[in-house]
Design a protein around this nucleic acid. Structure first.
Lengths: 239, 239
DNA sequence: CGTTGTTTTGACACTAGTCAATGGGTGTGG
DNA sequence: CCACACCCATTGACTAGTGTCAAAACAACG
């Protein structure tokens, strides 16, 4: 009974400036648009792809959110990242053509698929597209470095605060409120992502509440004092 | 008094299959070679570049080793990665043209410089080169994911064992022994990289020695039982 | 041979993990 | 409409693993 999503084009998509079309001429966007395949929306928990599967295309998040994870030898899931609208999924597979992680939907979510062979053809024809893809790959590396910095350094409090600020920033860039948002993932995923236990996530959120920095109601987060939250992570910032 | 390094070309460089020329035709490699600038070797501690500096080119490690790091607001250095011969430095700067980290030499080391504007021109002309650059960017993302997995999950023992195995693999790929090698970085850098204290690094190395898995003499590491070392990290492996 | 920087070792403290129990929302079926 | 079950989140008690601080051992260097 899921309603058919409105057929948006890259030209009318409000995400296009965050996504692959950024920096392209209108006629170039129109050419890109032709190769895009719209997949049916995925529901909570449905897999977009699994690790070691052959990569036939990249995915751009249109609506909803996704989670990247791997499963270790003991069967425990390790969450490695989250994807919000406008973000590209599958960049790690460009190396040898296979996905190195699994990705599932955190809620009802939809993606645009960019078939690899056609994307490569197009990149060869449109230098701006190749350029933008390279920029996105490079940005992903920078984001990873920031995550590694966060993981290797910091206390639980700083990790949780940074996580909230990161989401705030990403939601803000999407045009949503950067002080009120709903977490689409359970505590367990945040914990795994930050290298903490879910009990610690709970406790840190409770502490931030008691300091009147945020207020939490289940998955709903409100940042009541953004500057105080930024002050929490101050000692770990690089300059 | 540093001796002038022998003027190697990409065609005769034994690293070329690990580096940017991989997959190129001979005439393509010859074209690539023209744009490469040889910089004077750097000594221990010398900076290749610093964070926020404008990126004029990428660097490929020719000899020695480098360290990527940032400095936080309290002045503490956080090591984020190491570069061995054949590896490309500066990929994070392709996003907006500025380096996001600083890089210094861990020993007397040399690099080939690839000026960005000329590299971009060449990528437009040689599809194989563009393809290889994309592959290298993607591989860097996968490597980052592995590092994030390591950092967010694991005990000090597993981190140290994984670090040793990672070096073993990289030295092996370079044609060096994968059971005997010298660490080019002090314990403090390893500690910072793994999100541990340097005392913990010492203690874990001592423990691995007592279990007859490795032997350590200052910076010299010998892996005496590779399969035991692999067994140490078994529970954290993904499948 | 002394100086300096790095590594190792020891003692202790503290953060975060584990285990267990409780609380709260949501959805289903009687 | 309510009762129950289930899942997720929270809280508490306790423990284990690392960090911190300090001192000693060691290597490199002038």
């Amino acid at each position: 009974m899921t309603p058919t999503p409105p057929k948006t084009t890259c030209l009318t998509c409000r995400l296009s400036d965050l996504c692959l079309p950024f920096g392209l001429q209108i006629d170039e966007v129109e050419t890109l648009e032709i190769i895009i395949k719209n997949k049916r929306p995925l529901r909570l928990g449905e897999l977009l792809f699994t690790k070691d599967e052959q990569c036939l295309g990249l995915f751009a998040v249109k609506t909803g959110s996704f989670r990247r994870f791997v499963i270790n030898t003991e069967g425990v899931e390790q969450t490695l990242g989250f994807y919000l609208p406008g973000e590209l999924i599958g960049l790690d597979a460009l190396f040898d053509g296979n996905f190195t992680c699994s990705v599932d939907a955190l809620e009802t979510s939809s993606v645009c698929e960019l078939p690899l062979t056609r994307l490569n053809e197009l990149c060869a024809k449109i230098p701006n597209l190749q350029y933008q893809l390279t920029r996105i790959l490079s940005k992903e590396i920078t984001t990873n470095h920031e995550q590694m910095f966060l993981l290797s350094n910091n206390s639980a409090k700083i990790k949780v605060a940074t996580f909230l600020l990161m989401l705030s920033k990403r939601y803000g860039a999407l045009g949503y409120s950067h002080t009120h948002f709903n977490l689409s993932m359970p505590r367990q995923n945040i914990a795994s992502f930050l290298g903490l236990s879910n009990e610690t996530i709970s406790r840190q959120l409770t502490l931030l509440c008691k300091e009147n920095i945020i207020s939490v109601n289940q998955r709903a987060i409100q940042i009541t004092d953004l500057s105080l939250l930024q002050a929490v992570i101050e000692p770990c910032h690089s300059h």
